[in-house]
């Protein structure tokens, strides 16, 4: 009985993450359009896109291609159920942040395997750029999360949220300001927004990993991006903004973070890969290390 209850709740969280992620993407397109002084598509445009993609025929390059692309979405959905979302915290004893981060790696591995088995070098170049960039943003992010670990004396998201309870001044955002800024820049890289979107450069490498994806494969890719947005902003909300009393406030907090990323995305050009990585290892890492020193000493 307990099992089925948890199962249904998990499906609910998965559906929530997909819809919130798609909605964020749609609102993001609208906001970007307004920054460009355009009218922009409707906010639900990404739902329409996903439905269309799943109803469209597609080509595949074999079983590894199918499996990899399904793994990309599925592994992120498997990770999202461990994330405390407002009052919904399905597995409070099992919400280790590092576990969630490593489970997300499964999604990247699956996606990378899928698109590379298509045999298109553009896809592989995109993956190689994405992985190089991952090396860039993971390091400052690691510095920040380990500072939070030491600061909160716990590694479970549930307890990190609990440690921040009691008002705005207890949020890690206020208490660990340098870490927050570093993590915010890392988040920009994690979301793959400009200036760190070299992996999917459409004009250079024909949209990189997506080059051979059609129909439902692209649909899976879009779902993965949606869940990824939800998961990554959700981790940030739990780490720095003290979680949330309920789902709505949680989503609003997530949107604040996403909004900042959007604004940066709308006005900045793109880094080269090595520039992006060395930027990540200079400014955000420096901030993260300063924060770490403050915490440790």
């Amino acid at each position: 009985m307990m099992f089925f209850l948890k199962l249904i709740q998990s499906i609910g969280v998965g559906a929530l993450s997909i819809s919130v992620g798609l909605l964020f993407m749609g609102i993001g397109r609208k906001i970007t359009a307004r920054i460009h002084r355009r009218y922009g598509p409707p906010a639900i445009q990404n739902f329409i896109d996903v439905f269309k993609l799943f109803s469209k025929n597609s080509i595949s390059h074999g079983f590894a291609y199918d499996l990899g692309i399904i793994a990309g979405t599925s592994a992120l959905l498997a990770a999202v159920v461990f994330l405390p979302v407002g009052q919904i915290n399905l597995f409070p004893a099992n919400s280790s942040l590092i576990m969630i981060l490593y489970l997300m790696t499964m999604a990247y591995l699956g996606m990378a395997m899928g698109v590379s088995s298509s045999g298109n070098p553009n896809a592989t170049i995109g993956i190689s750029r994405a992985l190089t960039m991952m090396m860039g943003y993971k390091v400052p992010f690691a510095a920040v999360i380990f500072s939070v670990y030491i600061f909160a004396r716990t590694g479970s998201l549930t307890n990190i949220i609990a440690a921040q309870s009691g008002g705005l001044l207890n949020w890690n955002m206020i208490r660990l300001p340098f870490g927050f800024i570093a993590a915010e820049i890392a988040l920009q890289g994690m979301l793959g927004e400009k200036p760190f979107d070299m992996a999917i450069a459409p004009a250079e490498i024909a949209s990189g990993p997506m080059v051979e994806m059609s129909g439902k494969y692209l649909g899976f890719g879009m779902l993965q991006h949606a869940v990824g947005i939800f998961l990554e902003t959700g981790i940030m909300v739990n780490l720095f903004m003290g979680g949330a009393p309920n789902v709505w406030i949680f989503v609003i907090k997530q949107f604040e973070l996403f909004f900042i990323a959007l604004l940066v995305n709308a006005i900045l050009p793109r880094f080269r890969v090595e520039e992006g990585v060395s930027f990540m290892w200079k400014i955000p890492l420096l901030l993260g290390v300063i924060q770490a020193l403050i915490v440790v000493l």
């Binding site: 269309k52 469209k56 080509i59 459409p202 004009a203 024909a206 949209s207 997506m210 080059v211 051979e212 994806m213 059609s214 692209l218």
Partner: peptide
């Protein structure tokens, strides 16, 4: 606008 024929309608 899309980058490759695979993605386009």
């Amino acid at each position: 606008p899309m980058a490759t024929p695979r993605q386009a309608d």
